[in-house]
């Protein structure tokens, strides 16, 4: 598998990263270098092996249905780049 310049542009957009056109080639070759190196995993026989997603063997702990967060609006908004009347204000997002 080899990543093209177009694919890097697409991935960058999926990840919402602005990447200038002149960096795309470099990035493509870096990614390809890493992906080529990763390809050695093909040597491993994983037939019938379960994917491991965590090192913890217990099951999900559950909490009680209680309100424990104070709903502290100031704490939530205090680091906001822009807020007004208790709302986060962001650039116009229209579907």
């Amino acid at each position: 598998m080899s990543v093209t310049k177009d694919e890097v542009r697409h991935i960058a957009h999926l990840a919402r990263l602005r990447v200038s056109e002149d960096r795309l080639d470099t990035l493509a070759s870096e990614l390809n270098g890493i992906l080529d190196w990763i390809e050695q995993l093909d040597e491993v026989d994983v037939e019938g092996v379960e994917a491991m997603t965590t090192a913890v063997e217990s099951s999900l702990p559950m909490r009680e249905d209680k309100v424990t967060a104070a709903g502290d609006r100031d704490a939530v908004l205090k680091n906001a780049p822009k807020s007004e009347e208790g709302f986060f204000v962001v650039p116009k997002a229209v579907e």
């Binding site: 909490r63 249905d65 209680k66 309100v67 424990t68 967060a69 709903g71 609006r73 704490a75 939530v76 908004l77 009347e85 208790g86 709302f87 986060f88």
Partner: peptide, 22 residues
């Protein structure tokens, strides 16, 4: 009473962002 993964209330207060856990 509380949200799926946080301890914030599910009551929708009139105040925006007043039922928000970290």
């Amino acid at each position: 009473t509380a949200k799926l993964f946080s301890g914030a209330s599910t009551d929708f207060g009139a105040q925006p962002n007043s039922q928000v856990a970290l």
